[in-house]
């Protein structure tokens, strides 16, 4: 029992692997959708053999990635006989969030509910009021409530410290990156400062530092 903990130390790599596989699945689903959209735009009709081969290859890679996630999850479960109650709640919360986000995104993508331009996070083009309200409520109302519950009831003090350190480094990153970008824009070397890009850069720094502090 005592020695099984050494195996648990690799869980950071397993989680990282699962996240990368998840992103891979989302990107490949996008590729399949894109391929079929182009086919439809070119007149549609039945797919020929090479089209089927391409779609089948993309689906096969997706299935392999899904299998890899399942295997990594099984390895994580085997890495120790039992998991503390707090960690179980944490894991259920994480899996639930990923499933909810993934299924919602997939439904939007498969039903073609919104135009690709308006769902592009890095674009500043016009967005339908419906999607604007959905996103605002999700980020401005639901996320703060979930985050409050998350910090109050789910994370332990070691992870809380990881979040604090991540936030500190992200704040410094913002303090330094924003004015440097602004100066370089004024010097004509960079495009105008983009608030959303800065937001994602800050968020990325916070998440990378949090991950390193929690799992190193």
């Amino acid at each position: 029992m005592f020695n099984t903990d050494e195996n648990a130390g690799r869980n950071a790599l397993r989680i990282l692997g699962m996240i990368l596989c998840g992103f891979g699945i989302i990107m490949l689903l996008g590729a399949i959708m894109g391929f079929l959209s182009v086919h439809m735009a070119e007149g549609g009709g039945p797919l020929n053999m090479s089209d089927y081969a391409i779609v089948a290859a993309l689906i096969s890679v997706n299935l392999m990635l899904a299998f890899a996630i399942w295997r990594l999850l099984q390895q994580m479960k085997r890495s120790d006989q039992k998991v503390p109650q707090r960690e179980k709640v944490y894991n259920r919360f994480m899996v639930g969030s990923f499933l909810f986000g993934g299924v919602t995104g997939l439904i939007f993508a498969l039903t073609g509910s919104f135009d690709a331009n308006e769902t592009n996070l890095f674009a500043s083009g016009a967005m339908s009021p419906t999607l604007a309200i959905i996103m605002s409520v999700a980020i401005g109302v639901i996320m703060p409530a979930v985050t409050f519950y998350w910090h109050k009831n789910v994370v332990d003090e070691q992870e809380e410290a990881a979040y604090r350190f991540g936030a500190l480094i992200a704040m410094y990153a913002f303090w330094f990156i924003a004015p440097v970008w602004w100066f370089l824009w004024r010097g004509g070397m960079l495009p105008n400062v983009n608030g959303i890009v800065l937001y994602f850069m800050t968020l990325s720094v916070a998440l990378i530092v949090w991950f390193w502090k929690k799992y190193r």
């Binding site: 029992m1 005592f2 099984t4 903990d5 120790d80 006989q81 039992k82 707090r86 332990d156 070691q158």
Partner: peptide
């Protein structure tokens, strides 16, 4: 005790114990 056992007693995760 495993790290999970100790984590259970202290109400923290295995990462915290480690």
């Amino acid at each position: 005790w495993s790290q999970a056992d100790l984590g259970e007693h202290l109400d923290v995760s295995r990462q915290a114990v480690n």
